[in-house]
């Protein structure tokens, strides 16, 4: 039994101890897989919150390789991954129309093809999470938020093809399809509903700092979805 020095949890973190196996270990983050094949994450920084994650004082020192039972004290919810928000403030349209063409490593042609055939983005491009997966995740996030009918049409094409990418990305996309997102992304969506320019700029910067280009690809996808939803709604 490994005891975790938990501080806060995401709203969807299990309440009882859980058997997990370590998949990736980084300096401030550990990704583990549960019996349900789902990703569970141990974090040391609040900003890194995502679905099914636990903020700890420190990561367990012990280098477990097999399945282990992980226990943790009851802690408060520090992050709700579900995205339920009103419409974004139309004032920011000039901003979000910049995002589809951010440098992500994907060409504008690949992005355009991805909009029509989202499954073509799976596993495409470089990065721990391939840029195409990040773009897809961002796009599905904003579409699900603003145009669920259009979003569902896109999901229907993607879901059967998820084996075309790695486990971690697959988990990210499945969470997205269930209306759940990472803290940086949720902060940005909330800022888009607000009127505070500094808050918006800070949250965009936070996303762009993520990974090498993962953040930019996700943001580009979010922008694509915002543009599509806007056009679809007669914007």
């Amino acid at each position: 039994m490994i005891e975790l020095s938990a501080r806060l949890r995401s709203a969807d973190w299990p309440e009882k101890p859980v058997r997990l196996q370590v998949r990736h270990r980084f300096s401030g983050v550990m990704n583990l897989v549960g019996p349900d094949e789902k990703r569970y994450t141990l974090l040391t920084r609040h900003i890194d919150f995502q679905p099914r994650s636990l903020l700890c004082a420190s990561l367990p020192a012990h280098d477990a390789t097999g399945e282990e039972q992980y226990s943790f004290p009851p802690v408060e919810v520090g992050f709700d991954p579900e995205l339920r928000l009103p419409f974004p403030n139309p004032r920011w349209k000039g901003m979000w129309t910049e995002w589809p063409t951010l440098e992500t490593g994907l060409s504008p042609e690949e992005v355009e093809k991805g909009v029509q055939l989202p499954e073509s983005l799976l596993g495409r491009g470089e990065g721990f999470t391939p840029a195409g997966d990040d773009l897809l995740s961002g796009m599905l996030t904003s579409l699900l938020w603003l145009d669920p009918v259009l979003a569902e049409r896109k999901f229907l094409r993607v879901e059967p093809m998820l084996h075309n990418t790695g486990w971690f990305s697959r988990q990210m996309l499945l969470d997205t399809m269930h209306g759940c997102t990472w803290k940086r992304g949720k902060d940005l969506c909330m800022a888009l509903c607000d009127t505070d320019a500094a808050r918006l700029l800070e949250s965009v910067a936070s996303i762009l700092q993520w990974g090498h280009r993962s953040g930019a690809a996700w943001l580009a996808g979010l922008g694509v979805g915002l543009c599509l939803a806007d056009a679809h709604n007669g914007g």
Binding site: V224, C227, L228, A229, A231
Partner: peptide
């Protein structure tokens, strides 16, 4: 790249009914 892609998004979005 900007204008081309944005126009296409506008078109695709508008058509998606």
């Amino acid at each position: 790249a900007t204008q081309g892609l944005l126009q296409k998004l506008q078109k695709i979005g508008g058509e998606s009914s």
